[in-house]
Design a protein around this nucleic acid. Structure first.
Lengths: 159, 159
DNA sequence: AATATTAGTACACACCATGAACGAACGCGA
DNA sequence: TCGCGTTCGTTCATGGTGTGTACTAATATT
């Protein structure tokens, strides 16, 4: 019972451990809930949404590129793409330079859907940030960066 | 292009928005990866792990209670429980006071599995926290608390 | 020219979650 | 006590998410 709250000598306290785990779990849950909310609002499955939101600066995407960026299998991309094609959000274009490749482009309907989804997500993000004191906001961003770096370091050590 | 980095008048900057989204996404991904890692290490599906980790102070849990605490359907609990029963981690006991109810208890093997899983998760959490300067740790915990509060507030407004 | 590699697809499988329907058991009010 | 409403866990069908395998056609490499 000689655990201190403050960093007396740099050692982790039991309370810090517990707080960290609890808060991280809660934050994770909130993020998950937010994703579910958006998916349901637009009636687009989450994985399809992630795919839809990849379309940006490039004129075309490919299944292989999408798989790499989303970190999923190519076969899975086929399913997602077909779902979005069925919804009229993307179209398939043959690649004139390599007929194995299918080029994927956003349709106008897909562009609108993407805009709407992005707008909703931005609004929700802004609401979160606006619920935080501007003074605390900078500290928050710094802390998140610190945490991100620490987590990435630990993730790398797992492989 | 007159966006400032600091909180000049409390307004959100474009950079803050972008940073926040990017970091949150990355943090989310790290947390997801960590869960996948633990699940694979023990060869226990994630949902079963979450169920296994619920057993703690109480002598018995019920399917209904597990469903409420995990936020999932009772029918799903049946599947998870059966998976853990098959692995020898939990046992079913009839409730003498209400024969509709199935009481669920950790077996010795289940207790060991739970200990091992918890230990691994604690180690990983400690590695993350130890990768952070003790001075920054307190600030981090405060910021996480601030963020949690903000997120919970925004989540409530969605319902 | 022959062989190796690549891209996307179809398919089977496992995990994850929902809701509906069900039978058995319990609770409640007349 | 009895009839009805509610509850509990289970079964089942369905949809979402992801993997890996096998395949064909096309391309790259030797």
């Amino acid at each position: 019972m000689n655990e201190r709250e403050g960093p007396e000598n740099g050692e982790l306290t039991h309370k810090q451990r517990h707080q960290f785990s609890q808060m991280l779990e809660k934050l994770y849950q909130c993020c998950t809930d937010r994703q579910v909310y958006v998916s349901e609002k637009f009636e687009i499955p989450q994985a399809e949404l992630r795919c839809l939101l990849l379309f940006g600066q490039e004129r075309y995407l490919t299944a292989k590129g999408i798989a790499a960026r989303l970190g999923i299998a190519r076969s899975r991309v086929t399913m997602l793409v077909n779902g979005l094609v069925d919804k009229g959000f993307i179209s398939k274009v043959p690649d004139p330079a390599d007929s194995r490749v299918v080029l994927l482009a956003l349709t106008p309907a897909g562009q609108k859907a993407q805009r709407d989804v992005t707008s909703m997500m931005d609004t929700m993000r802004d609401e979160i940030l606006n619920a935080i004191d501007p003074e605390r906001r900078t500290a928050l961003l710094q802390s998140l960066d610190t945490l991100k770096t620490a987590m990435e370091r630990v993730s790398e050590a797992l492989e």
